[in-house]
Amino acid sequence: MILSKRFWVNSWLLCCSFILVSSCAINYSFSGVNIDYDKVKSFSVENFFNDSGGGPANMEQLFTESLKDFYQRNTRLELVRTNGDLQFSGAINRYNITPQATVTTTDPNLPDRAGQMRLTIGIEVEYANTVEEEESFKRTFSFFKDYDPRTTSILQVESVLIEEIFESILQDIFTATVANW
């Protein structure tokens, strides 16, 4: 009897919670999206440009398509060519490979070498929210990944590093625009 009573109480609480959450005007999901889909229905992404002077030739296209895919996977917004309710544009403005740690050799005839190298990518994003204009901004998002040049060259790991960096930057952009954390 006690088990049966707990079951009904828990079921009732779960039902009430579902009704309360589903009746809210702003839709929230476990992916962190905080969008009023009654007002915001679409997004558009202009082609990003590579103003960094580095990186592979298709990097700007890869980022542009990744941004579109990320929002399509994580929201119910419709991708439109231009004039979306949420609009994204910008450029890759940083692509640097810098040494992070030095390895000193014991041989005086050999120079010291970098023990770790860091690939850093920065992307300037101009975000226009046509529904809530005060949420619009222009900001640079940046992230890095390290690799060991003693065991691998940048050409061997570049595409993987870029993909991982883009994923982190996309998550930061998403959080800044529609997750409202």
Rank of each mutant, 00 (worst) to 15 (best):
S4N: 12
S4D: 09
K5E: 00
K5L: 03
S11W: 04
W12L: 03
S17K: 02
I19C: 09
V21L: 15
F30L: 11
F30W: 12
V33A: 13
I35G: 06
I35A: 00
D36Q: 00
D36H: 05
Y37A: 04
Y37C: 07
D38G: 06
V40T: 15
K41S: 05
S42I: 13
F43D: 12
E46L: 07
F48M: 11
F48N: 07
F48Q: 08
F48S: 10
F48V: 09
D51C: 00
S52R: 11
G53S: 07
G54D: 01
P56S: 12
P56L: 09
A57S: 15
E60R: 00
Q61T: 12
Q61M: 14
F63H: 03
F63K: 01
T64C: 11
E65G: 05
S66R: 08
S66V: 06
L67T: 02
K68I: 15
K68A: 12
F70Y: 15
R73C: 09
R73E: 14
N74C: 04
L77V: 10
L77F: 14
R81T: 11
T82F: 06
N83A: 08
G84V: 07
D85T: 03
D85S: 01
L86Y: 04
Q87P: 06
Q87V: 04
I92L: 09
N93A: 06
Y95C: 01
N96C: 01
A101R: 13
T102R: 09
T102D: 02
T102C: 02
T104H: 05
T106M: 06
D107T: 10
D107R: 10
D112G: 02
R113S: 08
A114R: 13
G115R: 05
M117F: 06
M117P: 01
M117W: 07
R118D: 01
T120S: 08
E124L: 10
V125F: 04
Y127D: 02
E132I: 13
E134Y: 15
E135L: 09
E135D: 04
R139C: 05
R139A: 11
T140W: 00
F141I: 04
F141H: 03
S142N: 05
F143C: 05
F143Y: 14
F144E: 00
K145R: 14
K145T: 09
K145G: 06
D146I: 08
Y147S: 00
Y147E: 01
D148A: 02
T151V: 10
T151H: 09
T151Q: 11
S153G: 12
S153N: 13
S153L: 10
E158Q: 15
S159W: 00
V160D: 08
L161N: 03
E164H: 02
F166R: 06
L170S: 07
D172A: 10
D172V: 01
T175W: 08
A176S: 15
T177V: 04
N180P: 07
